[in-house]
Computed example of a mutant assay.
Amino acid sequence: MLNILSILIGIIALLLAIPAFLPLLGALNWLIVPIALLGVLLGFLSSSNTGRNLCLVVLVICIIRLSLGGGIL
């Protein structure tokens, strides 16, 4: 059950991350990173690791995008 919840959180975070790649919307990643972290934590508690891996990928992508934009853009 926790894996399914982690997958759902990962999909929501991924859908929110898509507009955050547009110029001047990069600050949205500050909202996406905690959501993805919640999914990673739920994925660690689960017996499977699919949801955890999805959330980790979204988390890494958002952190890279934040670092490219200087944390603001």
Score class of each variant (00 low, 15 high):
15 L>I: 15
12 I>W: 06
59 L>I: 09
71 G>C: 09
54 L>R: 03
37 L>G: 14
16 L>H: 01
27 A>D: 04
27 A>E: 01
19 P>G: 11
40 V>L: 05
18 I>C: 03
36 A>T: 00
15 L>H: 02
70 G>W: 01
69 G>C: 01
2 L>G: 06
32 I>D: 11
40 V>W: 00
68 L>G: 10
7 I>Y: 01
18 I>R: 03
2 L>M: 09
38 L>R: 02
73 L>C: 03
62 C>F: 02
16 L>S: 07
67 S>W: 12
73 L>M: 10
64 I>N: 04
18 I>A: 09
73 L>P: 01
29 N>F: 15
24 L>W: 10
20 A>M: 12
33 V>L: 13
6 S>L: 11
68 L>N: 13
5 L>R: 15
67 S>G: 07
31 L>M: 12
43 G>N: 06
21 F>L: 15
47 S>G: 13
26 G>D: 05
69 G>H: 06
65 R>P: 02
24 L>F: 13
50 T>L: 10
69 G>Q: 04
21 F>I: 13
26 G>A: 07
21 F>N: 14
60 V>G: 12
63 I>P: 08
70 G>V: 01
25 L>K: 10
54 L>V: 08
56 L>F: 06
48 S>R: 06
14 L>D: 05
66 L>E: 03
51 G>N: 02
30 W>K: 11
22 L>T: 09
52 R>Q: 05
4 I>V: 12
18 I>P: 07
64 I>H: 02
9 I>W: 04
33 V>P: 12
3 N>D: 15
61 I>Q: 05
56 L>K: 07
18 I>E: 02
23 P>N: 10
39 G>V: 01
72 I>P: 02
61 I>V: 12
55 C>T: 06
54 L>E: 06
47 S>Y: 01
53 N>Y: 01
68 L>D: 10
54 L>M: 06
14 L>I: 11
3 N>V: 08
47 S>T: 15
37 L>A: 14
72 I>A: 13
49 N>W: 05
40 V>D: 00
67 S>R: 10
40 V>C: 09
43 G>A: 08
60 V>T: 13
24 L>T: 07
45 L>Y: 02
21 F>G: 12
37 L>F: 14
56 L>Y: 05
47 S>C: 08
20 A>P: 09
62 C>T: 07
13 A>D: 12
53 N>S: 04
29 N>C: 11
17 A>M: 15
63 I>Q: 08
69 G>M: 03
20 A>I: 09
